[in-house]
Write a protein that binds this DNA or RNA. Structure first.
Lengths: 171, 171
DNA sequence: GTCAGTGCAAACTTTTTGCAACTAC
DNA sequence: GTAGTTGCAAAAAGTTTGCACTGAC
């Protein structure tokens, strides 16, 4: 399924969702959906806000973004993650379930697929709980930081300051 | 291992960590560690703050709590979760790895153990990434909310308001 | 025409930071 | 004595809310 096809499909799903719940079909809502389905990987509200202002030339307020994203989550078109300081979101229609590797040093998030793992989790028998979806976050050190650390431990005293606050989001 | 024994052990681990990293061994830090290891399950900074003030009769500032908890995370004595609005923490020394069920309706978090799942995740081969720990969050509807929903759909119009904002933290 | 939805700004919550005072070493 | 820690208050960052205006129905 190509990108435009996906966009059309999710638009249709969203329309059905809005109808079913008696919500209005506003241009803002469709513009937000469209922008989100143009983004690869994760994004936060701030990124989405800038993207819409800059590229789509369609300004919506943050309040509307927060409102709309709740609808999209309920319509199963977006999922929410919470790593780092702010909530992260990603489109989820027609995307293989994937897992997340999070570097505890630089904060970088990588995705990986593993069908066996996916099945093991989804087929776990749970009592008194009706599973809808899941998130798996694996924490550790990414290859890049590993390399930095090796270099650091070689000539210890000098470099220690450099790797300080990479994890902080640069503004 | 009984509770006091665990507390002694983690205290020792923490001492070694502080020594190894040239940090001071302040009474605040040990009081925080002790309080955390008296808590079963998850807690947030605010809860910890109140607990220390009320029960331990040892007042520390929130800033110190935030500072200290970073040390405890690095010392592998505490892990951090991010469900809901604020960060949640839990002790992790001598605790079986467990997974989390999160009700998307009421926000309740339940833990469950599953050795097979644990092994499957820990033994996943990862390229260019050195795994240290992981979090698995399974989202869905808990038995209680399931029941509420069934009742709700029976006599639909009347009950809909009641289940509104349970997810909000009551203040 | 009506009321859900939007934009804006203010409020609120959680976390971080700067600085003076304190204390472990 | 000195430098790492603490407490406090202010600031920052993310999210929610109240209200007047707009536009989907």
């Amino acid at each position: 399924m190509d990108s435009q096809n996906v966009k059309d499909t999710v638009k249709q799903i969203f329309t059905e969702y809005l109808n079913a719940h008696g919500h209005r079909k506003t241009p803002e809502r469709y513009a937000i959906l469209d922008t989100i389905y143009s983004i690869d990987g994760h994004f936060d509200i701030d990124t989405l806000y800038s993207l819409m202002a800059d590229h789509e030339n369609f300004r919506v307020s943050r309040a509307t973004l927060y409102n709309t994203i709740v609808l999209l989550i309920n319509a199963r078109l977006v999922i929410k993650h919470q790593f780092g300081n702010s909530s992260q979101y990603e489109k989820c229609y027609n995307r293989g379930t994937h897992h997340h590797l999070i570097c505890t040093q630089c904060g970088k998030v990588t995705e990986f697929q593993n069908e066996g793992l996916k099945q093991a989790i989804e087929q776990t028998k749970l009592t008194r709980f009706c599973q809808s979806h899941y998130s798996l976050y694996i924490y550790g050190i990414c290859a890049k930081c590993e390399r930095i650390n090796r270099k650091k431990s070689k000539n210890d005293t000098s470099v220690s300051k450099k790797i300080g606050n990479i994890q902080k989001k640069e503004k």
